Amino acid sequence: MQVLNPEYKEAMRSNYLFMDIEEGDFATILQGTSVCELSAGEILFSQKQPATEFFLLVEGKIKISLLSFEGTQKVVDIINPGNTFAEVIILNGMEGYPVNAKALSNAKVLRINAEKYIQVLSNSSEACLKVIGRLSARLHWLMNEMERLSLHNASYRLISYLLEDIPHGSVEETKVILGAPKRIIASRISVTPETFSRTLKSLSQDELIEVYDEHILVKDPSKLREMLFI
């Protein structure tokens, strides 16, 4: 059994799936948890691969994508450090992953054994109910996010994406690290790369942002927030 360092344990305890788990049960989960280091471009799991684990990202970025019947790739999500992924797949009892997961940069991922985690929830109705409550709140937020993106134009989607990593109420000039190629971010917010580029150019011409290779400088976050309500 791999012994996790305190940093990894703290990362798990800070996540909604583990914060309400009792110490003894948490120790059981740790028995089925290991660290996986990925190089940029390395695949963590593939579509239809047996789903036996879910994951918590400690460092780097992970791209979650779906391959259509036509062979085109749709970026479903870009995972940032501190977030879990594939937990809904596990809790729904799906046999295989319906998506692909690939490292966009060098990454460290905690692999959590699904059987150990479900065993803990099965033995503790209190822990199970708390996790269900937190998971329901998260799914509700995701559904609202999907509805919000589907009803708005490219400018709204891009501005929303840029503001995700900026503290609410901040008015200071802020650097937003992209962490992924622009074409992947475009797919994530459901616009074409061409539309993405045009929207960046428009916001830049309005002197709201400055565009660089690996980051975007948001000159005044409050002005971008105002545009969401125009």
Rank of each mutant, 00 (worst) to 15 (best):
R148H: 12
K175V: 14
G93N: 08
I64G: 08
K74P: 02
A137D: 15
Q119G: 05
V171D: 13
P81N: 01
M146A: 15
P50G: 04
E172M: 12
K74M: 15
V75P: 13
S124E: 01
G93Q: 11
N80E: 12
I159G: 08
N144R: 09
N92S: 07
E115F: 08
N83R: 08
L142W: 00
M143E: 14
L149M: 12
Y156K: 00
K116V: 00
T174G: 13
V58F: 13
V131I: 15
Q73G: 02
G82V: 02
L91S: 12
R138E: 15
A103Y: 01
F69Y: 00
G71Q: 01
K74A: 14
V88A: 15
I159C: 07
A114Q: 05
L56F: 09
G96F: 10
Y156V: 05
P50A: 03
L104T: 02
E115C: 04
K130H: 10
L151H: 10
E115I: 05
C128Q: 09
L129F: 15
I89K: 07
N153R: 01
T72F: 08
A127R: 02
L158T: 03
E147R: 10
R157C: 00
A127G: 07
F69N: 03
N106P: 03
N100S: 08
R138T: 12
P81V: 02
Y156H: 09
V131D: 04
K74N: 14
S136G: 06
A107P: 03
K102Q: 13
Y156R: 00
L142N: 06
L110D: 10
K108W: 08
